[in-house]
Amino acid sequence: MKFRLRIWKQASGDAAGAFSDYEVDGISPETSFLEMIDTLNERLTERGEEAVAFESDCREGICGMCSMVINGQPHGPLPGTTTCQLYMRHFDDGQPITIEPWRSGAFPVLRDLMVDRSAFDRILESGGYVTVHSGPKPEPNANPIDPEVAEESLDAACCIGCGACVAACPNGAAMLFTAAKVSHLGLLPQGQPERWERVQNMVEQMEEEGFGSCRNYAECEAACPKEISIKFIGRLNRDYLRALREPIDRHGPMDSQ
């Protein structure tokens, strides 16, 4: 197979970017999308040209590293699929393919197709946890959890933090990402003591990072490779409103020293 590629090239965060055109041929349908770009990069290197910088690690759809907007769609045309799980048999021979990085003010481009997603980490750091030290804990089976609840919690917890939701959102909102973590913990008994404080802190951090606000476009759900439901955004909103209504006395960092 043969493909005409238009790829976003940008030398660094401060540099201006532009599309470059490439052609790759001799690609078998069993090749993955990223292997197709690996092949392009090898050929570019052999010619003494700079390779296209992109992120990937697990190549199994779980680490959340790969992040390409393919023909206008984050992670490309297949629903519930990350870029690394796309295969060239999902494309037509000779098809033009445009590849861009995630586009969002909160995810500055570092180089070519690589962006800085550390804003997500800071949202998690602001409250995406249950405070527990390492050491002896109560017997878990003393506290049964309805399997439906555990499953729903896992539906939210399986977020891979790739950022496709932000890239897909016309407003660049990070609501699906934040809602997934808030719901994962908020559904479980272990998450209850810090539930209201958590949602408030995480929403505040999200706003501080410059993500847009949610206008219910639902593009995030459509782009999410883990098909996380926007019902969790409703859940976040309800929790957030309740947290605002009943302000909690927030304590400082846990003093364990």
Partner: peptide, 17 residues
């Protein structure tokens, strides 16, 4: 025990264990 306390949603049986 540690992972459950952190909120790791392990698979459960119908009775919640």
């Amino acid at each position: 025990d540690q992972a459950v306390a952190q909120g790791v949603p392990f698979a459960r049986e119908y009775g919640g264990l």
